[in-house]
Amino acid sequence: MSSKKDPELPVQPKSGFSRRGFIRGVGIGSGVLGTTGLLPKEAAAAPGAAVVGPGPVAMTLTINGKPVNLTAEPRVTLLDAMRNYLDLTGAKRVCDRGTCGACTVLINGKSVYSCTTLAIDAQGKKIETIEGLPVNNPVSAAFVNHDGQQCGYCTPGFVMAAHGFLREHPNPTEADVEHGLCGNLCRCGTYMGVRKAVVEAAKGMKGGSNG
């Protein structure tokens, strides 16, 4: 793991494959990708830009108000960074492709699937995870009160998604909750309780802290 010793100057792989090389290749060889505006920032920055990875690099994430350092490959998702590198296991890896919401965290106040966000791209942003909330925060308490959980594996994701939702919709109806939380899936079938819990949590949060 020589690259771990010097994260600023990662070792280039022998194959010569790099993100920059990939982007160049796309630009030259692919009429489909080259002109569609995909990866605009990277494409624009490619000539002369610093290449990170593919070996581990040092990163600093701001999680629940505190800077946290880790060294991980640039391909590591925020979810895997939390679970595998930082022992923050409240967010769960379930679908691992932005479908089920079990990995939901808030980035700059918005709900995000951490399984489809690269850790390296989350630097400099305000990341909120369930570990940053008190055990008895209004949303979690309402999930208990309305039994909006069974096995509980999806629940932290629901709770974080509900926090994000309630910041923008402080007075939701159950129908609003259905719309706002349709990006999270539960397998045990707890939706009846979840609907009620989120509406109750909204009432509990009126005039108070948002958790």
């Binding site: 679970r83 967010a91 369930i130 039994d147 932290p156 709770v159």
Partner: peptide, 21 residues
């Protein structure tokens, strides 16, 4: 009564086997 492990689960504190490191 509310399920006894409810607060641990809904606050993300519950450690599932897959959370063990």
């Amino acid at each position: 009564p509310q399920r006894l492990d409810g607060p641990q689960k809904s606050s993300g504190r519950a450690k599932y086997s897959s959370d063990m490191n």
